[in-house]
Amino acid sequence: MSWISDALTSSIGRKLSMSLTGLFLVSFLFVHLSGNFLLFKADNGDAFNLYSHFMSTAGIIRVLEIVLVAGFGLHIYTAIVLTRKNAAARPVEYVANGSNKKVTWFSKNMGLSGSIVLVFLLLHLQNFYWRYHNWDIPMVEIDGKEYKDMYFLVASVFKNEWWVNPVYLLGLLLLGFHLQHGFASAFNTLGLEHKKYSPIISRIGNLISVLIPLGFATMPLYFWLFN
């Protein structure tokens, strides 16, 4: 079975891991975003709280959570391995820096945008995931049952700990740039290149790189500025 490890540890194999985990994480972003839009349902957060409860208790979700963590882990681990290998491939840097207009700055700095997104992610996990599970947060009654008031937590973080908002916005901005390059790049790595479809994929990449961060950004902005 050494052929599997040969394949996966080759340069292209690692790119494959990067690309598959990346696309998987994009799919997670979609799920996460659509769920979070429940925040805007005008029911004092009931729907959102029910959703939060489901996400933190349902068995299937707990399993998927492990898959998700593994996805993040593999994406980050592969990124580190590749970055180190790639840096080793050029032990001496150029003295002069030249740039080609056709090459975007962010495409060359995926490690940086990814790292900032990671910092944001850790803050985000502390803000909500950690507190939801470990803090005493107020309870709310819906249809006669008690639930943790996640809606209240979200609102209060964005309102009272307002200083996290710029970090969120920056994180989302960089997530956008990360996606802008990463989405189409993942398809190229998979070898899915076609004269007709590649331009479409690249346009979809551009679109989601704007829509996903914008969608997420509406939440802190809403609670910070309008509520």
Partner: peptide, 11 residues
């Protein structure tokens, strides 16, 4: 040979 891996920058 020790070449790096592609990150699709297009450079």
């Amino acid at each position: 040979e020790g070449f790096g891996a592609c990150t699709n920058t297009g450079a």
